[in-house]
Design a protein around this nucleic acid. Structure first.
Lengths: 234, 234
DNA sequence: TTTTTTATGACATGTGTATGACAAGTTCGG
DNA sequence: CCGAACTTGTCATACACATGTCATAAAAAA
């Protein structure tokens, strides 16, 4: 797994710097923004794994930004930890109300910060990764690491499993061979593009006895797609 | 890609001039308007890629124009950067509230202006490229790379897909065969002009079962056009 | 009608995809 | 430590589809 990327949104350069150093020591990648606008841009463009958001920001406050993020479908999965200067009950309540996943009051120890970040990340990732995905009787269970079709177990290799896992969590979207390679094999892996074809075929072969191979669709000239809809009008 | 066109709406000729020069140096095409009415006309007629909108304008204020643009379906995709004279908290909030994509306070450096423009354009274009285009039940979804007519998948070749994609994002406008070749096939490609006819026919054939071939209209002596309106009075 | 422009069907070619086989590498139990 | 069973990446080949061009029919303009 690649390192988690954390965005710090705070108008105090000193605080950003301090937090950044602490996070980098804890093996995170750090992004920084000095105001809510810039923070929002970065979140949209870079999709960090977690946002540390200062309560008090010039013009658009942190709480306002949090509200927007949680309202937007594309960003509401990103966990937020609010940083508040004073330990006021009201803030805490309001912050959690807005959808922040945790809050921490300044001054805080870097140790505490790190441990809270890890806790939130753990919750977020486990929530996302441990949920079984089911589509028209085809079911992928990440916990038992198994595929089943109408409760019948489906046999396939590990790579095919990961491929299907990726497809099922990214449905209705066409991916190029290169993208699949990056996503399923991981970046910096030298594998022939055409190898994808073979694994696609193996995956289809495994799903075929149940008729689910129709979900794995070829997008000629582009790559492949997982789709519940029919490949073409019949 | 052709150069991005930026509209400046400001009542101060000096400021318009200064910004225009800076933008042209940065390889943008510049349009100018001295008041909100004129600005609105130009936006409707020319559809610039981005609008720089002064906060304070005579009669109809910039913020009022922004509100109108964002409320109108045909213009609400055009990104707006507000220019405000004073760094007032209220303005910023209100501006973003109205739907401006960013704001910048005078005086500003041209460097900052350019970089903000680029940031906003980048976000807008990536958002636009991912958005499905839908016309009277005919829907093109770039994400899943698929065409559907009333949710029925439509089958066509890659070239026809790109052709339709171009047409649907440039509706109501006639293109010569040469222009289509440049836009859809790419420049520096030697292909017979008449080949377009064949691909037009293939595209029509794919759309015909759903009646959508009526959108692909011949403009005799010129080329072709995608139009929702009927080709001729019947 | 004659001329010009577009529509259509057919076709050879080229390009991208599917498939089976295989060799090298892994895993796991004995 | 060794061998059986399984994985995995690559290749060669078969195949399907997409593409550009032509010849001809059809339609529109002159």
């Amino acid at each position: 797994m690649s390192r988690n990327r954390i965005l710090i949104v705070d108008d105090e350069p000193a605080i950003r710097e301090m937090v950044a150093v602490a996070l980098e020591l804890a093996d995170f990648d750090v992004l920084e923004a000095e105001n809510a606008q810039r923070g929002h841009e970065i979140i949209v463009d870079e999709r960090p794994d977690l946002v540390l958001l200062d309560w008090m920001l010039p013009s658009v406050t942190g709480i306002e930004l949090a509200r927007r993020l949680k309202r937007d479908e594309t960003t509401n999965e990103i966990p937020i930890i609010m940083l508040t200067a004073k330990s006021e009950e009201d803030n805490k309540v309001q912050g959690l109300d807005v959808g922040a996943d945790d809050y921490i009051t300044k001054p805080f120890s870097t140790r505490e910060l790190i441990s809270r970040i890890k806790a939130v990340l753990r919750r977020a990732s486990s929530a996302a990764a441990e949920k079984a995905i089911e589509v028209e009787g085809l079911c992928l269970d990440p916990v038992s690491h198994r595929i089943s079709a109408n409760d019948e177990p489906v046999d396939m290799g590990p790579t095919e499993y990961r491929l299907l896992e990726f497809f099922m969590s990214h449905q209705e979207r066409a991916y190029s061979r290169t993208q699949l390679l990056d996503q399923v094999w991981g970046a910096n892996v030298y594998v022939e593009d055409r190898t994808i074809d073979v694994h696609i075929r193996r995956l289809r072969k495994a799903l075929a006895p149940f008729g689910y191979d129709r979900f794995i669709q070829t997008v000629r000239g582009t790559g492949y797609r997982f789709s519940v809809k029919a490949a073409k009008a019949s």
